[in-house]
Nucleic acid binder design. Structure first.
Lengths: 245, 245
DNA sequence: CCAAAAGTGTTCGCGGTACACCCATGC
DNA sequence: GCATGGGTGTACCGCGAACACTTTTGG
């Protein structure tokens, strides 16, 4: 996103020297679509802009790429500065550069998407609820710039990828029930799955393994918790194994 | 890539006005990985740089994004200006922005990849063979900047996509034999396919249809030529159909 | 007539899909 | 004891994989 001086951003006073070029140059920013899974929704993390343009409008977290900073690094830094989120799965999504996407002038945005274990970040949203918030994808508020397009593309990417790469686990806590996992796929893929077939399939891959733990605090039979065996997955990957749900 | 004044580029004298910004801005370029299919190879189109840095070194066609130009438009324009290629399948690939990828300073490149019917462009390469050329992927010359990485990523993208989206046809002439089509998949996927199973599968989709034409100028039995029925594909797409080889 | 590639069917096994009931637990 | 979700097995069918010979054509 193209917001210098946005709320929560580290403020550096304008530098003494000016920056002069022979040809016009666009500003380059990174924006992050952080997706999280709620009880029955995919949600996206938005922040409310403190400055014009689009003051008070919801937007994706993001900001300028620093002069000596890698693009991935910039995305992680903005995420940390604006939303306190760290250590999430992060992947470059697409670069948006339509000439008039920002009213202030030419801004090219390298968009990223991140997958967060939403439960880890409930507090942040709650303590500063006016300026950071999780929104379900089907009830997005009006969004600044072309951020609605960016979110749409992130969801499409997730949907296309979740069946062939085990990234869904990034949306769940380390220990999860098979029902949780199934619901994840149902929400992302937007279709119902058969419980028995889903369990058979997922367990046959041998990458989701039983733990000794049980679900806590439910008022019905507690589900067994499982974990994703990442090390095993990486070993199999090298042998040409292909994950698929 | 980031070469002002590269051979073949339209030259505009430096503008009278200077461009001044409060913060440093990276230069933004587009680079294109044009892939073409030869008798038994995937090839990539390279140009030889006329200026420093990397003078005389082979590099991807590309150049600066103009102030009021969309990224896709910039990629197509550079392709036209530097290689005479038009009307190809073109898709954004990835954005490369490591701080020191260009020795002249910060340059962020939005990379694209294109699929060309190589036969259409033999002439161009031939008439100016010193500065434009098709190189097989396994015999690339030394390349400027991080262009080898960019090419690698383009090939990975093609490999991942060709089985689920009918983009392979972009590499073939409008009329092709099933053997040609099979060879395409074998080259891209880097594995052998069974002739009977391949034909059964591809014809069962109903998107590759027989024409009246036969292969010409071969000294054995002439193969029947087929074409890809794009309109039918687009109709089926809307009904949730999924292409897969 | 020979070389080269085109073209063509069947069998088998695995994996995806459809489908319904009993069990454990908390209140 | 009842409501709530947890957990389990089988039968069928379609699709992918393996596999070899005959036909056509030009030289």
């Amino acid at each position: 996103m193209a917001a210098a001086g946005r709320k929560g951003e580290t403020w550096t006073p304008p530098p003494p020297g000016r920056h002069v070029y022979d040809y016009p140059r666009p500003a380059v920013t990174v924006d992050c679509v952080v997706l999280g899974l709620d009880a029955d929704d995919l949600k996206v993390l938005l922040i409310q802009r403190g400055l014009e343009p689009y003051q008070h409008t919801w937007a994706l977290p993001g900001g300028f790429v620093l002069p000596d900073e890698d693009l991935d690094t910039a995305a992680r830094r903005e995420l940390r500065e604006e939303t306190n989120i760290e250590d999430v799965y992060l992947e470059q999504l697409y670069t948006f550069g339509a000439p008039r996407r920002d009213p202030r002038g030419r801004v090219i945005t390298v968009a990223y998407y991140a997958l967060a274990k939403l439960s880890d970040y409930r507090v942040t949203a709650a303590t500063d609820a006016e300026s950071v918030g999780w929104y379900p994808l089907d009830k997005l508020p009006a969004l600044a710039f072309d951020h609605a397009d960016i979110i749409l593309r992130a969801v499409e990417r997730l949907r296309g990828k979740v069946r062939y790469v085990p990234i869904g686990f990034e949306l769940l806590p380390p220990r999860f029930s098979l029902t949780q996992l199934q619901r994840l796929y149902e929400i992302v893929l937007e279709r119902q799955l058969d419980k028995r077939n889903f369990r058979k399939k997922i367990l046959s891959l041998g990458l989701v393994v039983e733990t000794e733990e049980l679900e806590q605090g439910v008022r019905h039979r507690a589900a067994r918790l499982f974990r994703f065996d990442k090390k095993k997955y990486e070993r199999l990957l090298k042998q040409g194994f292909e994950f698929a749900i």
